[in-house]
Design a binder for these strands. Structure first.
Lengths: 198, 198, 198, 198
DNA sequence: TATGAATGAGCATTCATTCAT
DNA sequence: TATGAATGAATGCTCATTCAT
């Protein structure tokens, strides 16, 4: 009974989160009403409040979805057991791809904007940042032979620089020019190599 | 007298823009009402509409203020007639400073989020991007001796990488740890040098 | 229970329409605010929007109420199985009565004014006109023996003339003079007879 | 001096009234703002208030324009020294023409709607009605030989019927069908003759 | 668990009118 | 005579949230 209920509950929750995700991507947090989400989820407005205390909680759930995915993707890349460069390159590619989809860009910056105003979102993002940085540091030490000579602080500085670059790539002014794109990718890869090898 | 009137009008407009800026920084675009702006500007709600066709125009005015400032700051740095490194370093410092002020961070990402949903804002940002990139390319060729061997595309790729890094620095997870800050700054500076000199 | 809900919904809708009708009659479309209607309906402003997409829809609903009533009244008269003259005379009496009540006159002309500017209202009125004319033509052929010798176009011209006269009677300058009223009524009746019999 | 000023003033007043007329015809009373009128008149908003105490006064001025024109047109027709039928037929033609121009129809019904709510407008219309009826009665007695046997009340009843028919013709459902139009015109003319000759 | 009716504060915007110049 | 800056109440409409069923 309880198990069934929990399962059903979890599925219903997911249903709502996914509907919210779709709506938010389409129109942004602020222009999406609970009514729209309820329609997209095929669930009454009131019932959404059974699962989530409010709109903000929906935003939080989606932000967590995002950061969990990012973490998971990196871990997956790490599981392939390549070099550190290989692992981080996956993230570069992901970001360059995201930069091409307007919905992804919009969602990204909306989350960051929200994060600055909304303590709950900030908290989620902050924790995700810490977790991500720790995992990246681990990977640095595990996978990069030259890491032995580096302090944690030194590694962190390099990773922070890398992560900053990643984020910034999202908002690149998009050109359809493939050559230009390719050149940018090469430059970023060289910087990545430079950051890893010093 | 036309001059007087123009002056008065311009001053009133500035009054509104500045009030809006303060409100937006405090609470963000979406949570700032025209009533709040009118109060902050010491002007009736209706009269704001005498100078601006709507809230969106206020956002646009402020975004233009921001991008103009960024451009101007870079030009100022260029006027000091140092190396390209010196000029671009100024921007790094500015961004690392901005990263420390929550209002600046928030404003930054709110603008970027708005830019993805709102064509008018997108247009402003896009034009500013083009202008900025062109000026940076000029400076690269003017100030950097090694530029002679580089194609425009190559220079653009490096500058785009630099600009991406800059933007990403804004959202760095802030630590009060000065040492950490210093290390990051050094790392970024080394990347900057690497991007300039290849 | 669907039936219950539908009933409740329909009843709430009626409640709003009736409140709107009262307000509009009292002050006209343009000087009636949604807040007033909401108060008159004993329902929150927001909830009115649950049932009607906007103020215009309220106007439309009321216009439809009016035209349906007019059609129904004529049909009722027709059911009494008198002559065509009897049936149309009922409409004359109704209009002369309406002409005496300021609210009815005002509502009448407000609808017609709205109809010229507002395509949705125009559409309703136009459809009602067509329906009414067709029904009148039917009745003409059914009830009036001399109709056999007349073309549809001829009948339509007479009915249009009759309907124009009807409408015009609404705005007669009202005198309390019963004699005058009686004389007018007789004159109109003679014209009606002339229109029917040629 | 004074004459000049008066002339100038009258011309300015006319300028405003004409601008208002254009705006009202285009968008109706309620959707025309003083700002629009001021622009159309090439005069500042504030200055309009120098000549007219408010928007309502502009409406009144325009209503007076309309009723004066109608009266003048009828007098003009009377000056041609034809039969009563000829004189009144001119009005029929005018109304059938008006019925074809949406702006005229709209203006007509807007005035009538306003008339029911607004005592000042009502007063203007009422006085115009009285004046018109008296003039028509005069013409009836002057031009129609058979009038001698009729009481004033009888004549009034016929004229009122005629005027009602006229008004009603304005809102006829417009068809582009010329034949239909022609048939209607004939029917109305027959009714007119019937009303004159009894 | 599920519905959707109901609330009412909040919002951007409009506009007739006033008034200092 | 002429301007247009300035007001601020009013309007139609939205929406997160609650609650009776």
């Amino acid at each position: 009974m309880e198990t069934t209920d929990n399962k059903r509950g979890a599925s219903r929750r997911r249903q709502v989160v996914e509907a919210a995700l779709r709506c938010f991507e389409e129109n942004g947090f602020h222009k999406t009403s609970m009514a729209e989400i309820s329609e997209a989820a095929g669930m009454s407005v009131g019932h959404i409040y059974h699962y989530f205390p409010g709109k903000e909680a929906l935003i939080a759930a989606i932000v967590e979805l995002h950061v969990d995915q990012a973490f998971e993707h990196m871990n997956e890349a790490a599981r392939q057991k390549g070099t550190l460069y290989d692992v981080l390159l996956v993230r570069v590619c992901e970001h360059l791809d995201k930069a091409k989809r307007i919905k992804d860009r919009a969602a990204y910056f909306e989350v960051l904007a929200e994060c600055e105003r909304n303590p709950k979102i900030r908290d989620i993002i902050h924790k995700a940042d810490v977790r991500m940085m720790e995992r990246q540091r681990e990977l640095f030490r595990e996978l990069e032979p030259t890491a032995a000579q580096l302090s944690d602080a030194e590694i962190d500085a390099r990773l922070e620089t890398f992560n900053a670059l990643l984020l910034g790539l999202i908002r690149r002014d998009l050109t359809d020019d493939g050559a230009c794109d390719e050149l940018l990718r090469q430059t970023v890869e060289r910087v990545l190599l430079y950051l890893i090898k010093g």
